[in-house]
Design a protein around this nucleic acid. Structure first.
Lengths: 221, 221
DNA sequence: GGCGCTATTGAAACGTAGTCAATAGCCGAT
DNA sequence: ATCGGCTATTGACTACGTTTCAATAGCGCC
């Protein structure tokens, strides 16, 4: 039926194409949009991702997007939080019964494994697309705090030293070290993953020796 | 002369207030705007500083602002670069003839001194108001590279180890450590400045021992 | 087959970055 | 003095992206 096409075109021009509406459950749609946001904000900078783009890619109207996320920033933060949670979760299934030093090494393995798999997302998380937004800062800070806890969880001296300013400064600083080194490493891997892991673990070890001599009296410098 | 006020009001209403134009030399105007930008972007987030605000504060029109800086981002980057230069300059006048370890300690002193004096600017520099902008990233990266050079300049092993991946990873990671620890410290100083300085210096020392055993064979772990 | 609920739309409001032709102050020449 | 040119400066205008909201269409239920 050759006329079909012609008729269609006429109808389209006359009575407006009228894109068919696809109805989704709230949860599904929300999940779809979140996934899209995570991808988009990992690939491009915050300002380079427009609501129009997102809506077009999701094949919905801008209005609907705003129905699910009251603000572009909210959408961004929601995506970032998920990325953050995934990262923390990635190092959370390290066996409990290992020696502290092995736990650290295993955690580092899991951490490095995860960030190589999700390099783009990790970079966009850490570089913090909107540096000065308090919510974004809170997400990043949350990652640090939780990593701090994970890496130290189960070590015998953690309870003793909790609250010790010198110790906490040192370990939190080490987290900064790890972030920095892994960001560098993501963009140009000049060490193997094992070499980096060993280096990071060794340095943590030394840092704890320096920052908590009371626990390592025999090693005092 | 009571009528004065009334006359003024009438004139103002009739023939438009016509704000008087103040002509400035290009350099002065530019300097004024840069200073204003540095202040504003340190106080508020990038998006919360509008060109209209800046123009109003500077008592000039938007158009003129765009005459000096082709883009809001350019203005921001220009301000950020100055802050960055000031930070690097701050640690640049450490005497050349000190022992390496003392140079590091003196540099750290200068660094900490500077960031306490310019805490807000330092924080906005490091948090990188626009995380994903390549120019902004370049400024921050430039600070790191230059700090790296400054801290190591004059040490005997620097030339030997330049290019050694393990060593560079470690020292660059230490820069991350320092940034992180000093950002924390800016917001809540739980150590004295001297304690922090000593901690940072000790850790650098240990890090170099670990990362460059060939230079410290006698200390190999 | 109508009714109500809600996911969805489209257009319009709004704010902010960026443009540009016109203007006003300054200075040197006449 | 004043004219003329140079350039710092203006302000109205455009463009574009976020956000709002009343209207609409799909779906299940009676």
């Amino acid at each position: 039926m050759p006329p079909r096409r012609a008729i269609r075109l006429v109808r389209a021009a006359a009575s407006r194409p009228k894109r068919q509406r696809i109805r989704l459950e709230t949860d599904q749609r929300r999940a779809q949009l979140l996934a899209l946001a995570k991808r988009s904000f990992s690939d491009r900078a915050y300002d380079d991702v427009s609501i129009d783009d997102l809506a077009r890619e999701a094949k919905i109207s801008k209005g609907l997007l705003y129905h699910y996320f009251p603000t572009k920033r909210d959408l961004y933060v929601a995506g970032l939080s998920e990325i953050a949670d995934e990262l923390v979760a990635a190092i959370s299934n390290v066996p409990e019964d290992l020696a502290p030093i092995d736990r650290v090494r295993r955690s580092l393995d899991a951490y490095l494994e995860h960030i190589t798999r999700h390099a783009r997302a990790f970079v966009s998380l850490m570089r913090g697309g909107i540096g000065s937004d308090p919510e974004v800062a809170a997400v990043v800070e949350g990652v640090r705090t939780r990593l701090f806890d994970k890496f130290l969880h189960g070590t015998p001296f953690a309870p003793i030293l909790r609250g010790d300013a010198r110790f906490e400064t040192a370990v939190r600083g080490w987290i900064g070290f790890v972030e920095h080194a892994s960001l560098d490493w993501c963009t140009s891997a000049r060490l193997t993953r094992d070499e980096l892991r060993d280096l990071l673990a060794d340095i943590l070890h030394q840092i704890m020796r320096i920052a908590a001599p009371s626990v390592f009296p025999q090693l005092a410098k």
